[in-house]
Each structure stands twice: as C-alpha cells, then as structure tokens.
Design a protein around this nucleic acid. Structure first.
Lengths: 343, 343
DNA sequence: TTGTACGCGTTATCAT
DNA sequence: ATGATAACGCGTACAA
C-alpha cells in the first residue's frame, strides 16, 4: 500500500471525503478550522490529488493547450514564454505539448481535449492543411498562431488565426535587397512540397523579382535538405555551400529563417567571402540570435511579443463570448543590421 | 450532448463495452470481424478514448516523464530530441514537461506520477537540492541528467545521475587558457546563490587559477543579471560590457555557457576588440550555435548524444531490474575553434 | 468469444 | 458546515 487517496485523508481527519475535497479546492462552505486541520494532515502525509480522477469529474478545468509543431526553431521559444506568462496571468493552466513533424496536430488536440477538458487550443507553427470536417470535431475554440496561411485559407470563421502575411513580408525582404541594387538574389527555402510558410515566403520572393522584372534563376533557389533537421543552422550551412559550389552568380542571399541565414553566413565566411561586401545576406523571423551574430543579421522581424499577446487575448475574448473568430495579420519589421549593404 | 463515449460505441455496434475496449486495446480474445466492425464505427464517429479515465484504471501505462528545468538553454533541445527517440524506440510513451525556474520539480514530478502512472522520470537541468525525505516520496526510479552534482551529492543510491564533472571540466577550460599563456582570465558565471552547475563551474575556475598560482581577481568575476533570462545571449552581452567598462585588465574570458559566450563575443566585437587577437573567449556546453558563430567558439563540449542515450539506457536497466542505481560521469571534450589563441 | 458489473479517485448533488 | 452517494469513462474480473 503506498498510494494515499482522498479517502485516507478523510479517515485520518475523521471527516467525510467531500469535506476534504472542499478543503483542497477552496470551496466557500467550509469551516476555516476544519480546513486548516485537513490541510495539515494532507501536508504531513504528502497527499497529492490524482489529476486523472479530477479531470474525469471536473467541469471547470480552465486549461488551455499550446501545441508546438517542430521545436527546432528557436523562434517559438520566445512566443511560448510570453503565451505561458499571459495564460498564467489569467489564472488558467497551460498544457504545453510538442508535436512531431510527422504527427497530426489535430489528432493530438482531439485527444488532449478529452483528457484535459481544455477550454481552448493554440497551435503554433506547422502546416495545417486539415479538412473542415476534421476541424469541426474540435469543439473548443482554437487559434492558429504563426501558422502559414494564405488569404484564401483564412476565409473561414470556424477558427481564428494570428500571423504575419508571410508572402507580403517575404516580398519586403526581397524588395529591400533589390533596392540595395541586387539583381541576382539567391534563396534558401523549404522543399517544393512545403505547404506552409516555406511556400508563402518563396512565393513572395518570386513575386518581388517578377514585379521588378528581374529574372528568376531556379539554380539559385535552394531547398533545405529534408534529411536534416528542418530550419537548423546546419541546414543553412549545407545549402549555402551547395550554392557557392554551383558557380552561379548572385550578390545577395535570402534565407527564409534566421537560423538558416546564420548557418549560411558561416559557410560564406569559411569560403573567404566578405559579408556584406561580397554578398548581402538576409534572414526572416528576428530571433535573438541574429542580433548577437557577427555580422549581425539583417532580417524581417515578426512582432513576437505582440503576436503572442494577441493570441492569448483573442482566445480569451472568444471564451468570454466577447468576440467571434477573427483573423489578425501583423506587420513585420525590417531590421537592418550588418549583413546587408548596397551592391 | 457531444462527447461520445465507449458506451455509445458499444450501443451503436450492438455489443458490450468490454468488447469495444478489447478492440481498442488489441486484446487477443476477440473475433477479428467484430473488431473490424467496431473499429469502423469508431472511426466513423470520431470516437477518442478519454485518457484521464484510462490512466485512472490502467496498470500498464508504460510512460516516462522528462522534466526540463528552464527551457532557455538550447543545450537541452538536443538532449530532448535524442531521449525522445530512444524512449519511442522502447515503445514507451514520453511525457515532456517544462518546469519554471521558480517551480519545484519534485512537486511537479509527484503530481505527474499520480496522474500518468509513470514508470520513471528523467530530470534535465536545474539545481536539485532536495531533501532525502522528499525524494523518497518519489516511488518510481528517476535519473538526474545534466543536473549539477558534486561528488558528495552523488554518493546516494536512491536515484541515478548522468552528468559531466562540471568542476573538473571547468578546470580543463581554464587550464587550457592558462596553457595558451593567459594569466588574467575573466569569467561570466552564475550568481553567488547558485547551487548547481554555475557554482561548480566557478569552483573549477578558482581551483585552476589557484593550482597555477595565479591571482584571483574578484572584479573580473561577473555574474549573470538575475533580472534577465538566465543563460541568454543578452545576459552574456551585458556582462561582457560591464567587464569591458570596468577597466580591469585581462586577456581571456570564460563564459560558463556557450550562449553567454556568444553574447559576450558580440559585445567585444562591438567595442572594436579582435577575437582572439585581443582577447580569447571560451564557452561551455558545445551547442550547435558555437560552430556557426564568427569567430567560431572554442568550448568544452558535453557529449550530449552519449549522455542522452546513457540516461535512457540506465533507466530501462533499472526498470527491468538489471541494475541498481548508478552514477555515471562523462568526460567532456575540448573543442578548439577560432575564438581562442596564444597570448 | 462476449457481456455484466464493479471499482479506479475525484467532484457535484442532495440531504442533513 | 458537513456527510453520503451518484456520477465521470474506462478496464477487467467473472460469468455466460
């Protein structure tokens, strides 16, 4: 015998189980003295309520899940931190859950909803091309935050989303490079099968070149290796080496994530190239890291803090019935640092 | 009414609940046809078993929790990835849980054990100065992995640990700098109240200086700001600026984490200092990042992969009764890159 | 092979 | 203010 339950505590205290339950859950209808006595016994015996049993019975769990797809991008760490704090501030419990690249986040969410009596869900990152039918099974409000969305995709109102316009912001990046005088701009992007931010950012790149009547050279459009960890520095490093080895001419490189850009910078430097003198390099995301790199990284910064706050605020507005589903798009900020210059 | 339960499925199928249960859990005693039929109905109705109820009943949960203290250090990401894969390989379920710096990891673990019917626990990072009394309440095997330990602390046998000898490895770092001819070596370490790796690494620093009869100058021993995120680049950056502003003379800097070292590098570079010509800088941990920094970072690399594997292996050996508790200490590896040179 | 009934630890409801 | 008891959804003896 080693698991001690609420019954044991009740017996030890000479009271009923419901009284113990009341003591634990801060119910009003209880004599402060009995409560104190019970709490004392609980501490002495190291009793810990079983959460499974609680969740089974409870109606007011007040918890919200954050599902993060792919934890390799440090970009999410910042967001999680803020979301965590905001949720705590609202006296809700946060259930943080990582989901693998090959897992189905909606399936995971469906399970979690049942298990934890969730009030809401926040999806962070990932692709998210799920059927309406499946999404409708998720009968708690959910928000797609920083999940790649095309304008057509967000024309639904069965859920909310918080994001930047990946296509437009990506356009800004390339546009900036063009303004600096670059005409041959390489890109390190996601694979062709990417359905999310990778695809959108690549489209933004293409559109910018097209609008400026610059040629699109497929040989300087490099994809991350699928075999490597996605969005890793190593991946950027390898891609950059491949690019340099190709012999194609270009004067600027745009990596669709800061991590990739940092890896790419290293490859260029090792190859004896000067940044930004020989090549300009730009990233996307605005992670802390880019600020402390050498050269520091010019990037398109996503307003992490605002987005994280907006995500939580929107969710709570929906929960309290104040608002219906909404889709907010945040503007990114061009952060010019040392890795880019005029040609 | 919208939550569909095992009873509903049973009714829909015209069978008993136990038959449905058997279908779900791959029990042997069931007619393949009935099973197929039941599974079909389950899929059609989108039934998902309630995990809380399952955990409440189940005796064979086969799950292991990994509690990570402080997710700010990317060092842990690598370890988690590996541990995750290893656990999956053994057909166990992984419960990943972050614990805040100010939370008590043992309390969290205690709850989790009850809730999830855990078979074992892996603690990653943190301080871990808990009373035996408290640890004894944790009646499942647990392993402290990469948790700062002094030799005296690990002389217990109620749990296992996997770590590097932080003091000795730290000594190696400073010893290497001394061999390069440096005599005035600054350090960015944890606060005085640190009881864990920070303390041990600082002790290693002191011991190395002492052994080589070099003076210890308290004014070039800088602590991370408590107000900042611990072990962040920003923290290293600020500390380095403080150091430079102090006017104290030194030729080398040892930061007790790579993240701190990277931030410090940036501060030095911004101040117009050449690394390693003017100053040598070393880190500790061996994160991916240091490899792609410029200058790339000389560091003391912890054998992440081996340690992660050893952690899981040891846990399973204990679970299967093959072994009792054990304490393994891994040797770090001096990785010499560009940020250090002879004086 | 299948169904019935009980119990897991807790909270909610209804008495008292 | 407190206690008895019925759920919560599931797994599993045990009976059939």
């Amino acid at each position: 015998m080693d698991e001690i339950t609420i019954k044991d505590i009740a017996r030890l205290c000479g009271v009923g189980v419901s009284t113990v339950s009341r003591a634990i859950n801060n119910h009003p209808d209880i004599n402060p003295e009995t409560k104190a006595m019970i709490m004392q016994v609980i501490i002495e015996n190291g009793y810990i309520p079983n959460n499974s049993a609680r969740n089974l019975k409870r109606t007011d769990a007040k918890s919200i899940a954050v599902l993060v797809k792919g934890m390799t991008n440090p970009f999410f760490n910042d967001m999680i931190k803020i979301i965590e704090a905001e949720i705590k501030k609202k006296k809700y419990t946060l259930v943080l859950h990582h989901v693998e690249f090959n897992e189905d986040e909606v399936d995971v969410a469906l399970e979690l909803v049942k298990e934890k009596r969730l009030r809401g869900i926040i999806f962070l990152g990932g692709y998210f091309t799920h059927s309406d039918e499946k999404l409708n099974k998720l009968n708690v409000p959910f928000i797609l935050s920083t999940v790649g969305r095309t304008p057509e995709m967000i024309s639904r109102h069965s859920y909310s989303s918080i994001s930047v316009d990946d296509l437009a912001e990506s356009y800004k990046v390339v546009n900036y490079l063009i303004q600096l005088g670059h005409k041959n701009i390489a890109i390190i992007s996601a694979g062709d099968d990417d359905e999310s931010i990778g695809k959108l950012r690549l489209e933004g790149y293409r559109k910018a070149l097209l609008d400026h009547e610059l040629p699109i050279n497929d040989r300087i459009i490099i994809s991350m290796k699928q075999s490597n960890v996605q969005y890793s520095m190593e991946n950027g490093y390898e891609a950059a080496k491949e690019l340099l080895a190709s012999g194609e001419s270009f004067t600027a490189l745009y990596a669709i994530a800061d991590t990739l850009a940092i890896g790419a910078c290293r490859a260029f430097i090792e190859a004896g190239k000067k940044i930004p003198d020989d090549y300009s390099i730009m990233g996307f995301d605005g992670i802390e890291h880019g600020k402390y790199s050498t050269p520091s990284l010019t990037t398109l910064k996503q307003p992490v803090e605002e987005m994280a706050k907006a995500t939580v605020d929107l969710l709570f507005d929906i929960l309290s019935g104040k608002k219906g589903h909404d889709h907010k798009i945040f503007a990114g900020e061009l952060v010019i640092r040392e890795s880019t210059s005029e040609i």
